[in-house]
């Protein structure tokens, strides 16, 4: 029951955070191990999804605290990872594919907290309130992180598509 309901969310969060399928699988297992050993700490009045995603977020941040490790892991991302994961569908046009790749790679350049906010809100469809609860910060902070992150991605997209600017 827990696995069926929550594994997709944890796996997607881990995948979008690590940008590696193998790493995401390992991380998902680690998070579920942690979940089963911390279930005693869960109180009925808590929102279970938010509680579990907070546990996942803490695990991800602890695991990839060292920026070096994070970067070396995420260097392996490429078109293959995206295609295999179904994020680049064959029906996507060339331009659309290119933009997706640029945005995907640009996500790596965001800070951990901004990236997590974008992943939860934009990629996983959480609300501002849910994202704020999971990341344990006020809603205003989440809004400003998402605003900042999207603008940063837009600028990075502009840098990667100089030819379009000239047209």
């Amino acid at each position: 029951m827990i696995v069926n309901t929550y594994a997709p969310q944890i796996f997607n969060l881990a995948f979008h955070f690590t940008h590696s399928r193998e790493e995401a699988e390992d991380v998902t297992q680690e998070i579920f191990l942690k979940l089963f050993s911390s279930l005693k700490k869960y109180k009925k009045e808590m929102n279970f999804t938010a509680w579990l995603l907070t546990l996942a977020r803490n695990h991800l941040i602890d695991k990839y605290r060292r920026e070096k490790k994070e970067k070396s892991l995420r260097q392996e991302l490429d078109e293959r990872v995206l295609t295999e994961s179904g994020l680049l569908s064959p029906e996507n046009g060339h331009d659309q594919k290119e933009v997706k790749l640029i945005v995907w790679k640009a996500l790596d350049q965001l800070s951990t907290e901004v990236r997590l906010s974008i992943v939860l809100f934009d990629l996983m469809g959480k609300t501002y309130e849910e994202t704020a609860e999971i990341l344990d910060v006020p809603v205003g902070t989440i809004k400003s992180r998402i605003n900042r992150g999207r603008l940063q991605l837009a600028r990075l997209l502009a840098d990667q598509q100089p030819q379009k600017r000239r047209i």
């Binding site: 696995v3 594994a7 997709p8 796996f11 997607n12 995948f15 979008h16 399928r21 699988e25 998902t28 297992q29 579920f32 994961s85 179904g86 994020l87 933009v99 997706k100 945005v103 995907w104 974008i118 934009d122 990629l123 996983m124 999207r150 603008l151 991605l153 837009a154 600028r155 997209l157 502009a158 598509q161």
Partner: peptide, 25 residues
């Protein structure tokens, strides 16, 4: 560009959990 980024982010689909991982879980 911001518009493109917003649309692109929403277009990344959720990926399904591999059966081998589900079995381990």
């Amino acid at each position: 560009n911001l518009q493109q980024v917003r649309v692109t982010l929403r277009e990344f689909p959720q990926i399904s959990v591999p059966p081998s991982l589900a079995e381990k879980l």
